[in-house]
Write a protein that binds this DNA or RNA. Structure first.
Lengths: 367, 367
DNA sequence: TCCGGCTATGACAACGTTATCTCATCAGCC
DNA sequence: GGCTGATGAGATAACGTTGTCATAGCCGGA
């Protein structure tokens, strides 16, 4: 009944509305429509769209007018299928910090938008046995043009190997291993921790507690190095009992503070390797009844939103997460497979949580 | 020289490695490879992949084996181009809260993964004149199968109209206008604010300050309604001077607290419509030297990470953001264009920032 | 004048899937 | 025993781009 059959018409024939009148239809405009309106070949439209060489200004203008008039947007799917680019890059992370991820996405997304690329965000679990397969599937399915990874995924050897096997451009943010194997963006964690430690020393502190970060993150070790470096320069001996392992989160910061403050010779300042842990230190101090910064100075790392929201506001190191994301995407888009490195500046931010130690603290017998 | 010409061979002929041996090549496996290995037609493979009817168990098994053996992942681009689905949905937001966005993405992403869909995140600016075009371009380019919007984008009429024009399935999270125009997920903001207010009243508070949210968000007004509703039920008169407008952020919370605490008859409790603002209230109280919760109870809304990180930890309303995201994606995937609504439960979380008011507060002359 | 190289444009195949149509088989029914 | 409808499988044409090749015009040098 509804089965019209007219010989030559088979398959999905949907011949476009001919003539010049009715493009404001529900059907999306295609490159074919644009070529008809502009009065040029499809290939010429494609050339203009892709900014290829050998297009006269005349043609270019005609095409651009037609594109604007039809409000034409090329199909990413068709471009991906026909070409060898997908105009998409992936951001792979296994990071529980909303603040970090939000800003990283903002930076990467910003750069992508500038280049008319799209960012595909892929959370993952570095302990999952399916990690490598998941990454492979993502690349296969979406035909990604490049990958950005954040710690700690940056240092998963098997994942890295899979990416090399596929010869896909990779940029890592703050990588810890195989530093020269891929492009990378990072800050100088050693120097940053050194800066903070030196600042605390300059206030007069001699016993400075350090809460380190999660062992999966190489930055944790780097910050310990910077801490020791500053102590040494100041002629202060390293006391291992002042270093307490944390996990970057609030709870571990609070636990570390309780342990450190219970020492026979407690520190007069605690430097936590993340703002979350610093907030934990603050909470523990409150609980115990130690006032900050009068009796205890507290410093964080990252300068997340959190730093200004706790009381007192945290002295911390500003890590330009958004800029790191932007730079990572920039390296990917500008250099592709060519390996490049870019170091971004950090900044010491002084707020209310640090002050000179109380003079003549009883029990401080050291020179 | 390199120009071999053999008549029929033109264009990009890359004949696949015949035989059965070398698929572990660099070239991705295609559906054609799978069909050859399985010994069935391409279309049958497609049927199995798309879980279509009319495939015998025998065939299905052969195909699945071949897929696994070749580690085959279908090209999303080709699927999108050939079919009428793209297996992608968009998440459009203009929200400055990392916590909110992170959890929303987690929820939506989770549901997408379960359905082998991909989530495309698109931040936007509701005040930008290009908003509607941007959304249109996104849908055109990526051929999205659906859209999820979060406040305040949910209530931008022009954007909504554009989506209707394109007849694309839409789910809105906490919409404020045109409630029945699209599918929606939400919590009962009126009841939630009522619950919190009633709780504060039950502690003995009679003068309860309210810091409202940003006027762009309809939830702000709804929470005011709930607040008034609880007061009325308790027979407490509404005092407009106790209601102070905020913007959902820390700064405005601090400013509101300063204003409220400077009143001749200051409130004994302040209910802020977000945890960020509640943290601001806390900070202002600290600054002024008012202790919480002894002299002032403070309550928030959202139960973000923040709530447990400030001191004292916030009594707040838990808003299941992640679940809202999951539910939104679920509605989209399960019902498509069919309009559905789903309300999720909220929860009153009592922590250390609230307590009964100090007995016999001088200056409290009201009954 | 003719050739070679650069510029500018177009024709057509190819990318890897899904949609449509066709055909074969098989069971149940008049 | 042939008709009908459900089931199972394949051939082939799209989908909307880009890649490859062909070609035409133009300029400069042999």
């Amino acid at each position: 009944m509804v089965n019209r059959r007219d010989g030559e018409m088979r398959g999905r024939d949907r011949d476009l509305p001919a003539g010049d009148g009715a493009f404001a239809r529900m059907t999306r405009a295609t490159i074919k429509d644009v070529s008809r309106v502009a009065g040029v070949s499809i290939k010429t439209v494609s050339r203009v769209l892709n900014k290829e060489r050998y297009v006269s200004d005349d043609m270019r203008q005609k095409v651009e007018e037609a594109v604007a008039r039809l409000n034409y947007h090329p199909s990413l799917a068709a471009r991906t299928l026909a070409g060898r680019r997908s105009f998409q890059i992936g951001l792979i992370h296994d990071n529980p910090s909303p603040y970090y991820i939000f800003n990283m996405q903002a930076g990467v997304g910003q750069r992508c938008r500038e280049a008319d690329f799209r960012m595909i965000v892929q959370p993952c679990d570095i302990n999952s046995p399916g990690l490598v397969d998941d990454i492979g599937a993502l690349i296969d399915q979406a035909q990604l043009d490049g990958i950005i990874m954040t710690p700690p995924v940056t240092d998963v050897g098997t994942a890295l190997a899979e990416l090399f096997r596929r010869k896909i451009p990779v940029v890592r943010v703050q990588p810890g291993t195989d530093l020269t194997a891929t492009s990378a963006v990072y800050i100088d964690n050693v120097q940053a921790a050194d800066d903070m430690t030196a600042y605390l020393i300059s206030l007069g502190h001699r016993r400075i507690g350090l809460v380190t970060g999660h062992a999966n993150y190489f930055a944790s070790g780097q910050r310990l190095t910077g801490y020791r470096q500053a102590l040494q320069r100041a002629g202060i001996g390293f006391d291992a009992s002042l270093v307490f392992p944390g996990q970057f989160d609030f709870q571990s910061g609070a636990a570390a503070a309780e342990a450190l403050l219970a020492l026979d010779e407690p520190p007069t300042a605690i430097f936590a390797s993340s703002d979350d842990m610093a907030a934990g230190v603050l909470a523990a101090a409150h609980r115990i009844g130690i006032s900050v910064p009068d009796q205890l100075s507290v410093a964080g790392f990252d300068d997340t939103d959190l730093a200004q929201v706790v009381w007192p506001a945290l002295t911390t190191i500003r890590q330009p997460i958004r800029d790191l994301g932007y730079a990572a995407a920039d390296l990917l888009l500008e250099f592709g497979e060519t390996i490049e490195r870019r170091q971004l500046p950090h900044e010491l931010i002084v707020r209310g949580s640090t002050a000179p130690p109380r003079p003549m603290d009883p029990g401080s017998s050291r020179g």
